[in-house]
């Protein structure tokens, strides 16, 4: 049974205690590889290991931990998330997926009990440094939540809000339209921009929330199970949308739906119970040939 006891025959690991080297086989954009926090017995079978070049990394976690009070919700996480790709975070419920995601834009600040340790680097800067303003961070790292949560305002005001608080004084109408088009919602709502965002259907509301998140043009979009409250048709629309967003944005999406992760993501991170990042790598490889036995069990539905 694999345990969290890194061994020294883990030859590819640059640091002795933990394998933090993401791997790649064919260039920076199409990175192949694995990042594992469990034993390294499989490392020797993937010999052509390269790091994702630093320039392609948007977010990097270094020994990132989270405690809620005395309970550790995240075991030290080491991972690099590549730019303009969709990274899926999967794992059984309660394994810390949302906790990890909330570290990326410091939404954990709002949880009184949460304490974060280690580093979380956004373009090289540790966002948990003293001098970082979470407000500034969140303007570059947008978020879409599990339950659609439009403001009780008009569709237009919902989309414009992020730009408004950033003091944007350009052509707001154009930006609102652009964001709504980007969220594949424009055609459906262009005649009713003044009506309440709450009057839309659930799926439309979630796309409105996506439009709201992309309107200020962030670099990263975090999504926490964005389709879990939606019906299959609305889910399919949101999934298509995520695919398109990846052309412009770095997307990190939490999902407990493995088919969804397989469909929409380039990279997959698997967390397992206890808040441990057990495997990270190309989605195709993870789903076809996971290195970790428990990941395989999870993916094949033996538990979770």
């Amino acid at each position: 049974m694999p345990e969290d006891t890194p061994t020294d025959d883990d030859v590819t690991a640059p640091t002795p205690r933990r394998n933090t080297a993401p791997t790649a086989t064919d260039g920076p954009r199409r990175t192949e590889g694995s990042l594992r926090t469990d034993g390294g017995q499989v490392a020797e079978t993937t010999p052509s290991i390269q790091e994702i070049p630093e320039t392609d990394t948007v977010i990097e976690a270094k020994d990132l931990t989270v405690h809620y009070g005395d309970v550790q919700a995240l075991q030290p996480v080491n991972v690099r998330l590549p730019e303009r790709e969709v990274t899926a975070i999967i794992g059984p419920s309660g394994c810390g997926k949302s906790t990890f995601l909330r570290c990326l834009n410091r939404m954990n600040d709002m949880v009184d009990a949460a304490r974060v340790g280690g580093e979380l680097r956004f373009r090289g800067k540790n966002v948990y440094d003293e001098d970082v303003d979470p407000v500034a961070l969140r303007r570059r790292v947008g978020m879409v939540f599990q339950k659609p949560n439009p403001f009780p305002k008009s569709i237009y005001d919902n989309v414009a809000y992020g730009l408004k608080i950033q003091g944007f004084d350009g052509d707001m109408d154009a930006r609102v339209e652009e964001a709504l088009r980007g969220a594949a919602l424009w055609e459906e709502v262009k005649g009713q921009l003044d009506s309440s965002g709450l009057d839309l259907s659930g799926g439309q509301q979630q796309r409105l929330c996506i439009a709201r998140a992309i309107a200020p043009d962030p670099e990263v979009i975090l999504m926490d199970e964005p389709a879990s409250a939606l019906d299959p048709v609305a889910t399919a629309k949101v999934e298509d949308l995520i695919d398109e967003l990846a052309a412009q944005y770095t997307v990190v999406i939490v999902t407990h739906n493995m088919q969804q992760a397989a469909r929409i993501s380039d990279k997959t991170a698997v967390f397992l119970t206890g808040g441990k990042l057990v495997e990270f790598g190309d989605t195709d490889r993870i789903f076809e040939n996971p290195e970790n036995q428990r990941v395989e069990d999870y993916i094949t539905g033996k538990f979770g």
């Binding site: 834009n105 709002m110 947008g142 009780p152 809000y161 950033q166 709201r212």
Partner: peptide, 12 residues
């Protein structure tokens, strides 16, 4: 949820 939506957009 509503507060988080605004915080997530970088609201103070």
């Amino acid at each position: 949820d509503l507060r988080n939506a605004a915080y997530g957009l970088g609201a103070t």
